[in-house]
Design a protein around this nucleic acid. Structure first.
Lengths: 222, 222
DNA sequence: GTATGATTATATCAGTCGTTTGATTAAAGG
DNA sequence: CCTTTAATCAAACGACTGATATAATCATAC
């Protein structure tokens, strides 16, 4: 059995099972059973269970983020010396994930679910890994958005960008092949447009009135 | 040892550990160790590990949802025959969770984290339970929002409401006592206002242009 | 005091877990 | 061909898991 085959089979199986059951809920025996390989192969090829997860996450996230960054750079290049449009930036941020579904079919669904869940995955190391992959990129996108929305205070934008991440995370975690995405793959683009519309509006929202700390709690505010 | 004490201790410990490590990553021995009780007490008082989780989730969610519903009803009563404002509805939806942090301090943080994570928790039964608690209530809020936004198509609202849930889920899952929420509890109200502003704008966003399926992919759309 | 039910404590069961080990096999290189 | 390296295999280790059984203790009522 060729080594690239064994490793790939382990990675594929682990990807599926980690996405479905999380890190703690997935045993190495389940992985090796599904991959049809020997238990010790995991340790031979990857080391610890954590190392396996690192490998799974890395092979997913690195190409996606490369694509994400490339899209952003293209958007910026097309805008020239002007700031790029907010919608285009958001599209660059979101599209690579959603297009996984269209391009990879069922594996795309597995991956998006895995990505979406990794952010709130109970095992701390999963979260830490996930954030590590996104930190620099997030900063990059934050700055592009700040240029597109100079009138929104920076701290507010930082916070709102987290909400953008939250929405994307949630959508990814909730993908379901029997739902809208699975039925009609061209709907991915429609979904993208609607997502971008929602998020762009939220990012552009005027700041709410400053709170007044010395007043008792109020009911309705028009 | 009085039975209400033992049960409470188990529930408290389980709440903390499930929130931190998830269902699969938390063993009953860890729970009983932390609670300072005997292993058999779990089965005696609660039955299976799943039943314990049910009990933990139920004692958290039921009062919060009661409060959520009460706030919505108050908002509707104040609006009379008019539709209530979107902002007020969103506030009724979100405030009970956020106020946990202010009102319960560290336990509030634990609970919000638990709630936020339960939606994407890898163990399927956690998710199923979580959704079960929110299904009817979600429907109730959806209808209130639809009355506040009659110009947005119903199917689009349904979908956008899921994004609202996603944002809230993410914020809850990401609570960190060392962050903004923990430092200044009065900031919970500011957070609520900013959240509502973001989400209200997104919900009110005009529909994006319908997609054209027969056209090649476009770049920027102004 | 006794009787009864509730509760706790301990031991055990059967199984699972990640990791390691030494043996064996397969492939590559000289 | 032999030697070396890479890869695979099966067994074992020590630890842990949820659940159960049983006996002891506690609490309450009569």
């Amino acid at each position: 059995m060729a080594d690239t085959d064994t490793k790939e089979r382990i990675l594929d199986a682990a990807e599926r099972l980690f996405a479905a059951h999380g890190f703690a809920g997935t045993s190495l025996r389940a992985v090796t059973r599904e991959a049809g390989v020997n238990l010790a192969a995991v340790h031979y090829h990857f080391g610890t269970k954590e190392d396996l997860l690192r490998a799974v996450l890395g092979r997913i996230v690195i190409p996606i983020n490369r694509e994400r960054l490339a899209m952003l750079e293209q958007v910026e290049a097309e805008a020239g010396s002007d700031p790029p449009s907010l919608e285009a930036i958001l599209e660059a941020f979101i599209a690579p994930d959603l297009r996984l579904i269209r391009d990879l079919g069922e594996r795309g669904v597995i991956i998006t679910r895995f990505l979406g869940r990794s952010y709130t995955e109970p095992a701390e190391m999963v979260q830490a890994l996930s954030r590590e992959h996104y930190e620099e990129l997030g900063q990059r996108f934050m700055e592009a958005i700040a240029r597109a929305l100079p009138e929104v205070p920076r701290t507010e934008l930082y916070w709102r960008f987290k909400l953008v991440v939250g929405v994307l995370t949630y959508i990814l975690a909730d993908t379901d092949p029997t739902g809208a995405y699975g039925e009609d793959l061209s709907d991915v683009d429609g979904t993208l447009r609607r997502l971008v519309a929602f998020l762009a509006a939220g990012l552009r929202a005027p700041m709410p009135e400053a709170q007044r700390r010395d007043q008792p709690e109020e009911g309705a505010s028009s």
